[in-house]
């Protein structure tokens, strides 16, 4: 403890001063952390003439006479319009039709990949995490250590082989197979190991006595897993789902390389494609970035406790 209690009229104590300084420093850090995001939002609402100005302006609100005039702001949604490419159409439900590939193709693909992978990972990780948490068997330590070691294997070094495997399977002409299945399996295999460990940690926290009681009451071991333990583990499973969902959503290189047809590629490829096409059109790139990133930011803000739980659990293990 630092000094004696301070009266109302005394100078601030050292503790108070330190607190003030820490808050000032944190505010500054938050400012710098969010600066790139804020400027991107600003850019996304500018017109092309304002984006390509020399020297650049932060707010498109200057006039011939004044540097900043709030009534003269030239905000525009041009960037978003060029990503969405809505066209009037008689037959479409809202009177227009969306033609931008980001919204018609890439984003729906990403939603599909992220949800299917998330569900698969939750299912597999909860089954094996449960087994690791509740049973003792030979080879358990070895298997768990193996899975932990795999956690660190990056997608990148396996990608070459996966790419060749993809070509071989594609050529073999299995009915209903397409690259999407292979991509989702790859994502599942890639995000599963850490999730197994996270799931085990969550199951360890659920008292065994509940299951034993269910067994006594006549449920089968699988029945007690699905009816008693899994419902209690739901918050943990939700964390795993969200973490996997975001990871797949944000993944680029596998989605880019393992899928051969452009119409099956995910949103991050669409973003990469946009970067190549719009070298000067910063407002279009900014708008596309925001359209792709906003859903994840919203999910994160709504469920941040879930994320932190999975991350801390996973980081300690992995």
């Amino acid at each position: 403890m630092t000094t004696a209690a301070s009266g109302p009229n005394r100078a601030p104590t050292r503790k108070q001063r330190e607190g003030f300084l820490a808050n000032a420093a944190l505010t500054l850090i938050v400012f710098f952390a969010l600066l790139p995001i804020v400027t991107t939002i600003l850019i996304s609402f500018k017109r092309e003439e304002d984006v390509t100005r020399k020297p650049p302006v932060i707010f498109p609100c200057d006039t011939a006479t004044s540097g900043f005039d709030i009534t003269a702001c030239r905000w525009s949604t041009e960037g978003y319009e060029r990503v969405i490419l809505a066209q009037p159409s008689e037959s479409a439900p809202f009177g227009f039709q969306i033609r931008g590939r980001m919204l018609t193709t890439y984003l729906p693909n990403t939603v599909l990949y992220a949800s299917v992978t998330g569900l698969l990972v939750v299912l597999l990780a909860s089954l094996s995490g449960y087994a690791f948490s509740r049973y003792q068997f030979r080879g358990k330590m070895l298997l768990m250590t193996g899975i932990l070691a795999i956690t660190g294997v990056p997608l990148l070094t396996n990608l070459l082989a996966l790419y060749q495997m993809g070509i071989t399977i594609r050529k073999s002409g299995i009915p209903i197979y397409d690259d999407r299945i292979f991509l989702m399996l790859t994502y599942t295999g890639f995000f599963l190991p850490l999730s197994v460990w996270i799931a085990k940690g969550f199951f360890d926290a659920i008292p065994r006595e509940l299951e034993e009681a269910a067994l006594i009451d006549g449920l089968s071991p699988l029945g007690s897993l699905f009816r008693i333990t899994l419902p209690l583990a739901m918050p943990g499973m939700l964390s795993i789902f969200l973490l996997t969902f975001v990871n797949v959503w944000n993944e680029f290189i596998a989605g880019y390389l393992l899928v051969s047809k452009n119409e099956l590629k995910p949103a991050m490829f669409g973003m990469y494609d946009f970067l190549g096409q719009n070298i000067i059109n910063a407002q279009v790139i900014a708008a596309a970035s925001i359209i792709i990133a906003l859903p994840m930011v919203v999910v994160f803000l709504l469920a941040r406790r879930s994320f932190f739980r999975a991350m801390v659990e996973g980081a300690i293990k992995g």
């Binding site: 995001i37 944000n250 680029f252 970035s289 792709i292 930011v297």
Partner: peptide, 10 residues
């Protein structure tokens, strides 16, 4: 929460 592609673009 932002993808590295998005961060790079930004």
């Amino acid at each position: 929460i932002l993808a590295d592609i998005i961060a790079g673009a930004v």
